[in-house]
């Protein structure tokens, strides 16, 4: 799949929840985070979201998010999100919601965004083993 325009990312954020206001369609990103503390691993994150705002999205594009554990660069998941019939004259917003996502070990994890297999952007979160009352 090819495209006339290659999308550009204006923002890519990881958060607890993405809320859309009825009527205006304004978005609220609740609980933007970069670090996760857990007393044990593996850990299941019940819910989180990835918000992406892009320009130059035209026609039909298959977005893909690769979730990668950075220390050994293993692939945890690959999420494909095809978007159809986009108007390039206005920005595109994409919300990906994940439930019960299991993280095997502490460390840095990356969400790598591709459009039609072209690398665009990344967001990183840091999973830390953390006991209650720890420094």
């Amino acid at each position: 799949m090819s495209f006339e325009l290659i999308p550009s990312v204006l923002a890519m954020l990881v958060c607890d929840q993405i809320i859309t206001e009825q009527g205006t369609n304004k978005k609220s990103l609740i609980g933007i985070f970069q670090r996760v503390h857990s007393p044990m691993f593996p850990v299941v994150i019940p819910r989180f979201g990835i918000y992406v705002k892009l320009v130059d999205v035209e026609g039909t594009i298959e977005f893909k998010v690769r979730i990668v554990k950075l220390d050994d660069e293993t692939l945890l998941a690959e999420l494909a999100a095809p978007i159809k019939d986009q108007d390039p004259s206005r920005p595109t917003e994409l919300a990906i919601s994940l439930q019960n996502f299991q993280i095997p070990q502490p460390g840095k994890y990356e969400f790598q965004l591709y459009a039609n297999d072209v690398y665009l952007h990344r967001a990183t979160i840091d999973l830390v083993e953390w006991q209650a009352g720890g420094e």
Binding site: T24, K27, V44, P91, E93, A95, L98, N100, Q102
Partner: peptide, 19 residues
């Protein structure tokens, strides 16, 4: 046993500020 993972996505409609 860990609950099974799931994911969804939405293409969102741009927001509007009503003055």
């Amino acid at each position: 046993m860990a609950p099974s993972a799931a994911a969804t996505y939405q293409s969102l409609v741009p927001g509007l500020l009503e003055l």
